[in-house]
């Protein structure tokens, strides 16, 4: 009997799913916050990959956990920065549609 939770490929395929659905959402969403949500999904896929390789092939179990913790920290910093960007853009352009934010278009 092969256990689903003890196979590396389960986690890898799930991480690929998180990555591609994040990319799909980034292209499909028409708002800044929607794109940010999709970015968090991509980052989660990366963290899951690190943890999976850490469990099944890594020599030191601390390495993958440290990497995933740093990904979480980067994601938190990125979310704070992007939300403040969105607020500034919303105040300047009075819109939440990325199509209308075209001040550099010339």
């Amino acid at each position: 009997m092969i256990l689903l939770s003890q196979s590396l490929n389960t986690y890898l395929i799930l991480a690929v799913f998180l990555l591609v659905i994040g990319i799909y959402g980034m292209i499909r969403h028409k708002t800044f916050i929607g794109m940010l949500v999709s970015t968090e999904l991509v980052l989660n896929g990366a963290g899951l990959n690190f943890m999976a390789f850490n469990k099944f092939t890594g020599p030191d179990p601390a390495v993958g956990q440290v990497f995933t913790l740093f990904i979480m920290g980067i994601a938190a910093a990125e979310a704070a920065i992007v939300v403040s960007f969105i607020l500034a853009v919303y105040r300047k352009y009075q819109t939440s549609d990325p199509e209308n934010v075209n001040g550099l278009q010339g």
Partner: peptide, 25 residues
Amino acid sequence: LIYMGAVCIVLVFGIMVGYTPNESA
């Protein structure tokens, strides 16, 4: 703690301050 407690709250805050509730997609 970090993702569901902090990042999601920041996102909800961003929606509440800057957006109309319905995304017109």
